[in-house]
């Protein structure tokens, strides 16, 4: 564990807490893409298959449980909770995310560390996480103005993987034989997808104005 990875995990945890706060406090999920939440639930379920088989540390196990639990709880809330699901704008959240799942699965069968179920699922979860934010970003551009909590949620979600890139650079130079090309390249693509969001987020923060994404 290094400071970059710990900072990344904490930033990721904050993004989840901000989303839970928004849904719990406002009893609304307006501006949140259910499809991105479903993709993230699939990312965690396919990545943490080894949750009970190989124990790494209490921290690792706890965080995996938190990410799996919170992503499933958010999907459940947006689909089942009477008040929350009413605020879900399904006619705006129209990204064909099943194509993302299919494309990532095919890529994972072709490019992986080993052709085993666990490694193919791991690579699938890495590729899927890289593109999971797309439905959310498309929804934000369609819905124009972004409420603060939603903006903060997306910001922290994007920032966490940037910390992980620093972590991979750090580990590459400090540990022998450490290579995570699949995770690193996917992580760079993932962070790059947030580039324009980060730009408009910074502008809105600098001008102390509402976050506006160009349509």
């Amino acid at each position: 564990m290094n400071i970059f990875r710990f900072a990344g995990d904490m930033t990721h945890l904050i993004s989840v807490l901000v989303l839970l706060l928004k849904i719990y406090a406002t009893k609304s999920c307006s501006g949140i893409s259910l499809k991105t939440q479903e993709l993230y639930a699939l990312v965690f379920l396919s990545r943490y298959l080894d949750l009970f088989t190989n124990y790494i540390s209490l921290y690792n196990t706890l965080m995996k449980l938190v990410f799996i639990g919170s992503s499933l709880a958010i999907v459940w809330c947006m689909r089942m909770h009477h008040a929350v699901k009413r605020s879900y704008d399904k006619e705006v959240d129209t990204f064909r995310h099943y194509y993302l799942v299919l494309a990532c699965f095919v890529l994972a069968t072709l490019v992986n560390e080993q052709f085993t179920l666990r490694e193919v699922c791991w690579a699938f979860s890495i590729y899927l996480e890289a593109v999971a934010i797309l439905p959310q970003l498309v929804l934000l551009q369609r819905s124009g103005n972004v409420d603060n909590l939603t903006g903060q949620y997306v910001f922290f979600l994007g920032a966490y993987r940037a910390f992980y890139i620093l972590n991979w650079i750090y580990r590459y130079f400090t540990e022998q034989y450490f290579t995570r090309w699949i995770a690193c390249i996917a992580g760079i693509v993932q962070t790059a997808l947030y580039a324009d969001f980060f730009y408009y987020y910074f502008i809105s923060w600098k001008n102390n104005a509402k976050l506006q994404l160009p349509a």
Binding site: R5, D9, H12, R47, D50, N54, I56, N60, M63, K64, F67, E113, Q114, E119, W122, Y164, N167, R180, A183
Partner: peptide, 10 residues
């Protein structure tokens, strides 16, 4: 043999 890549990251 190739050690199974231990995925120690989240």
């Amino acid at each position: 043999g190739t050690e199974a890549t231990m995925h120690d990251e989240l």
